[in-house]
Amino acid sequence: MSLSLERKSGPGPPVSGMRLADAELGDLYPIGLECLYLDLRAPCDLYRRLQDGEMVFFARRGIPFDQEARDRLHELGVSELYIREDDVPRFFTFIRETLEKIVRDNSVSPQKKAEAVHVSCMETMRRAYADPRAVFLQQAHEVIAPTVDLIVHDDVATRALVQLTAYDHCTYVHSTNVGIFGIALARIMYGQESVAVMERLGAGFFLHDLGKCRIPVEILNKPGSLTPKERRLVNRHPRDGYEILRLEGFMTDEAEILTLQHHEREDGEGYPAGLTSRDIHPYARICRLVDIYEALTADRPYHKRRTTFEALKFMQEQILTDMDQELLRNFVLLFAKS
């Protein structure tokens, strides 16, 4: 895969390294390198961005993506490639089918399965939160299903998955982490539930913050205090998320509970409905607990991340009520086993 920047003369397909005008490219969608699984063929044409911002053709669809190719890109400081927007459905089909094969393959190690699940979830959540239309919510659900299956049936892979959670303030990263933690804790608390219920719970955990896609990023990342108007906008995101899921046809009982109740509090000071302890569903308590933990351990513009120990201690002493202490004790087990 030569990275020569010479322009190809005459008609025909572009060559690796060829600079391309915006008109030739159309809309491009970024993908993480880790989504191109080693020793598998690229599902579509790949492009990369040069340091000066120009786009070049990198590799043709079908080329084996090996460690040499990945190392070469890392040496160039490349962390993501690009695909054409009209190739996005093909790309997400590749992610889903590859993930299903990896999760079901007994010869693949739990660590490798966990890595594949984490990468796939991050990529699909990034797309769903950026553009929460039905087609992308469906793609998210198709990746969540094998994720739930792995967590429910493989303790070793679950422990590896917990270790892989990233410390980033992006909403899709936060939601990926909450999804992983939420399923893992729900499995401890409600492991007797059917796979179908666990899958619906998983989808609710991963998409609990979908309404944040309607909040301007400068408000989400504001380092200082929010104005009353900004706070009202932020506090609207549970209802906005509920409305998006309802309009796009992805509303379930579990999604309704998790989307609307994950910011409710025992004392009635939560939002959006000001529910008190007896009205908050146990599923929502799980979501709130893991949501708080993830927020405390992530780098945010308005605070530095805490360690796992610091976050759990703070939650036990300052935030959670007696009703949530059993949840916290079971949540700690995820880290005690790791």
Rank of each mutant, 00 (worst) to 15 (best):
V332G: 04
R231Q: 15
A273D: 15
H174Q: 15
F309N: 12
D209R: 11
A145H: 14
R285F: 00
R214W: 03
F65V: 07
L36D: 13
G179P: 05
R90C: 00
R133V: 14
D22V: 09
E254M: 04
P223S: 03
F181P: 06
H118E: 07
Y129V: 03
E199Y: 04
L99F: 09
L333G: 04
M315A: 07
S2P: 09
L137D: 11
P14S: 05
G17L: 02
K101F: 04
G182E: 12
L40I: 01
R49G: 06
G17D: 03
G241I: 02
E24Q: 14
M55Y: 11
C44N: 11
G182C: 04
E218M: 04
F91H: 10
T307P: 14
A311I: 02
S16F: 00
R84T: 03
F136S: 10
D155T: 09
I257K: 08
I292L: 12
V15L: 07
R96K: 12
L275F: 11
L81G: 02
T158F: 01
A116R: 13
T124F: 08
R200P: 14
V195P: 13
H208T: 11
F57P: 11
E218C: 06
L164E: 10
A298R: 15
E54V: 01
A284Y: 08
I257F: 05
I95Q: 05
Y190D: 13
E264I: 00
L201C: 08
A184K: 12
D322V: 04
I280M: 05
E97F: 04
L36F: 09
E310H: 09
E317H: 13
E269N: 05
C170S: 14
H153K: 11
P301C: 06
R96G: 00
L40Q: 13
R200L: 02
P14E: 10
I188P: 07
S109N: 09
Q318V: 01
L312R: 07
A255Q: 06
Q163L: 13
V143L: 13
K113V: 00
F331C: 03
I144S: 10
Q261D: 02
K229L: 05
V290Y: 08
V119C: 06
D324H: 09
L28N: 08
R133I: 11
G202C: 02
Y129Q: 12
L137H: 05
G26I: 12
F94G: 04
I244Y: 11
S277Q: 14
G53S: 03
V332E: 13
E248V: 00
P110M: 01
E75M: 06
V119K: 06
D52L: 05
L38V: 07
R236N: 10
E75N: 10
L164M: 14
C170D: 15
G26N: 14
I219N: 11
I183K: 07
L81K: 08
R127W: 04
F309C: 07
F181A: 00
T98M: 02
V234L: 15
M251R: 08
F335P: 12
Q139Y: 12
Y129N: 04
G182S: 04
D52Y: 06
